[in-house]
Structures are given as C-alpha cells and as structure tokens.
Design a protein around this nucleic acid. Structure first.
Lengths: 106, 106
DNA sequence: TTCATATGCAACCTCCTGGTTGCAGGATAG
DNA sequence: CTATCCTGCAACCAGGAGGTTGCATATGAA
C-alpha cells in the first residue's frame, strides 16, 4: 500500500560490497573520477565503471564529463527514499506489535 | 571506517520485488506459513521458499516448524542495522557538505 | 605535433539467481 | 488406516551479474 514500489532497485544497487564501498568513498571524499575510484579498489576500471552505471540506473549516483575525465558524485534523494522505506516498515512493524499486544491483553 | 561491513547482504536481500513484498506482508500480517505466503503471490511455493531462505541467510527473517507447516516471521535487528547504515551515510554526507561549504566560504 | 592519460565499447567467461517441475516424506483429519 | 495437506530435496534451465581483456578514441601536456 504505502509501497514506494521502486525501492527494490535501490536496495539491489546497495547490495554489493564494492558498490557500498564506492558510496562510502564518494560520500566521504566527494566527487571523484573513475581512475581515482579505481585506485584503492582491487578490481578493474571497467568493473568500477559498470558498478557506477548500475548505481546511476538506480538513481544513487550521477556522473558528468569534465575534460577528459568523468567525475561521479552521490545523489542523495534515492538514498533517502530507501531510508524512508525502511522507516515505514519499522513503523508498520511497531503497529502490528501494538495490535497484537492489545489483542492478547484483551 | 564506520563500515558495518555486513550490510551488503541485507541490502541484497531487500533488493528484490518479491522479497520486499514478503517483508511487507510478514510485517503487516504477522507470522505466516509458506502456503499462505504463496497464496497472494504469482510465483511457486518453492520460489517463495528460496526467497525466505535468502532472507534468513541475511538475518532478515526466521522460520520455525509448527506441526506440519513452517511459520516465518520478521527479525527486526538487521533491518535496523540497515537503517542505521543509511543514517550513517546520510550523516557522513552532511558533514562532507558542511566541510565543503566552510572550505569555499573561507 | 606527439605522447601519455582517462575513458568508452565490445566480446567473452564463469557463477549465481530466480524460477520451474517432479517426486518423496512427515503430519493431520476422517 | 488412508487420504490429504504442507513441506523439503534435487535436477534443471535461461538469463543476468560481476569481472576480465583488448582495442579504439578523445583530451591534455610537452
């Protein structure tokens, strides 16, 4: 019902160690080029590129060409959507517990 | 650094429409048997079973045998871990923005 | 111009995933 | 006891994910 309906791709995009690390780095150090992201990772530049595109597809990140390098940065909105979704689930859960308690106590 | 290091599997487990729906239903209607979960879904019972096991592996859900049926319910902890992880990222992001602003203004 | 750097594109490979079907077995209702 | 219901297990399949290599191309530096 209160299902944002598009959260699954975001979670899927976050469901990979390398991608989660990319998010972390982009978050902590700000926008970065692909080669800089590749340095400090144990996979190929193309792997990084693919991950970035996956996350871009999910709306987590966006990149722009600056001269001869393409710089990527976080896009916070979908991240907050995901957070909101988890909050909804938690709240729903609490309500269910409350109802159950009331039902048992009566 | 502040990397919980085990969040990726949780996000991966949430990164599927069917699984997200299962979470929603278990959350809203409480513990349920596999067949009841299968009814109201457009996939096979075995598919549901597999999804449940994936989520169990991620710590999102747990099941117990009751008589001849196995009843599954949410486990909230990992869900909150994931929420916390997203919060951390958001906070880190805010800090980065603040630092950037300060740097630009000076 | 010429060379080095940063990226993009495409092919290829392996393994996992989501899904199915078929069958066997344990628990219950009559 | 027997039929029925709920589940588990195993095999199987198509497609996608993550990763690599090789080559082509654009941009910046000397």
């Amino acid at each position: 019902m209160a299902e944002p309906k598009g959260s699954a791709p975001v979670f899927a995009a976050l469901g990979d160690e390398n991608r989660l690390r990319l998010v972390s780095r982009l978050c902590a150090a700000g926008p970065m080029s692909i080669t800089r992201l590749t340095a400090g990772s144990n996979v190929t530049r193309q792997a990084i590129t693919k991950h970035l595109h996956v996350m871009e597809e999910a709306g987590l990140v966006r990149g722009a060409r600056h001269g001869r390098e393409s710089v990527w940065q976080l896009d916070r909105r979908r991240l907050q959507d995901a957070r909101h979704h988890l909050d909804l689930i938690s709240k729903q859960w609490d309500d269910a517990l409350a109802r159950l308690r009331k039902f048992v106590e009566d």
